[in-house]
């Protein structure tokens, strides 16, 4: 049985790197007594894969890992067992069953949402979210190409960020409704939100191309944005928070001819429903939406 787990990462846990998070979950799954499946061979390992590595220093409300289990308690009971053994700073948000032929989240990742804002003491991106929105429009809508040079291990490459930024806008972190709409669950961001204040804490919301083929880190966009507007950029000067990770809605997330056909038929049906109701069919689906609670 395939299970997709969604979790959030905050506080001091942001300093735990991707590989250590994998080790963390291997042990956590044992502690929670999840009946995970092991690979064959002399040194068996848990069948587990992560969707998209998160950089050190970045917090998240939308991390995913897939596991294979031999049997499972209900989603609720499993989440409870896991949450009882989580370190402070990791909370399990979802535990969902996937179709047996499901593709791994890793192979499906297409986009991710981020919230980016400056730490106190660093050059602000703008004084208000309205001003920031104007700067975003100049940077994003106003340019047909956003060229940057990216340093890879071997060489420098020039790339155009524009087609890889799916969405970019300014928001005010002091509006609870806005935070709810974009799905912020991070307790520290929520605690800092002061609705009654007139103060405006501007932040960038980004939906970026993510995955193994093309991958844009939010830092790259922020750096280009700062350079465009003559704002001094420092790598450690901003908070970066991932909100959600998505698959393409039209990417069929299962293997096997029959299963794919069933999924495709259902997809078309949904698309027609949307059309009839005059709603735009979503371009992306959160990875968790591909599973069901058990």
């Amino acid at each position: 049985m395939n299970i997709r787990i969604k979790f959030q990462k905050y506080g001091v846990m942001k300093f735990i790197g991707h590989l250590d998070m994998m080790r963390y979950f291997q042990k956590a799954i044992r502690r929670a007594d999840i009946d995970i499946a092991y690979s064959e061979g002399y040194s068996p390992h848990q069948i587990m894969s992560f969707a998209a590595p998160l950089g050190v220093g970045v917090t998240s409300d939308g991390e995913y890992l897939d596991i294979e289990v031999k049997s499972s308690k209900s989603s609720k009971a499993s989440m409870q067992s896991l949450n009882e053994t989580m370190a402070e700073g990791i909370t399990i948000l979802e535990y969902r069953k996937l179709p047996d032929t499901a593709k791994t989240s890793m192979s499906l990742v297409a986009a991710a949402d981020y919230l980016v804002y400056q730490k106190p003491g660093y050059c602000p991106l703008a004084d208000t979210s309205t001003q920031l929105q104007a700067k975003v429009e100049a940077f994003y809508e106003g340019q047909s190409h956003i060229y940057i040079t990216k340093q890879t291990k071997k060489r420098e490459i020039e790339m155009d960020l524009k087609p890889l930024i799916y969405e970019m806008k300014a928001i005010n972190l002091n509006q609870k409704q806005t935070l709810a709409r974009i799905g912020v669950k991070n307790p520290q961001i929520l605690a800092a939100c002061q609705e009654e204040t007139t103060e405006d804490t501007p932040a960038l919301f980004l939906k970026l191309c993510t995955g193994s083929a093309d991958n844009v880190k939010p830092e790259l966009v922020l750096e280009a944005f700062c350079r465009f507007h003559g704002i001094s950029y420092e790598p450690s000067g901003s908070y970066i928070h991932r909100l959600e990770v998505y698959a393409r809605a039209d990417d069929i997330p299962v293997k096997g001819e029959q299963e794919r056909q069933v999924y495709a038929d259902n997809l078309n049906h949904q698309r027609e429903l949307c059309q009839q109701q005059g709603i735009e069919f979503p371009k992306f689906l959160a990875l968790g939406e591909l599973g069901i609670d058990i």
Partner: peptide, 16 residues
Amino acid sequence: ILMSVDKPARYIGNEI
């Protein structure tokens, strides 16, 4: 500081 040093997990505690 934590982002500038090797293995910041050495200094944050919070272990299981």
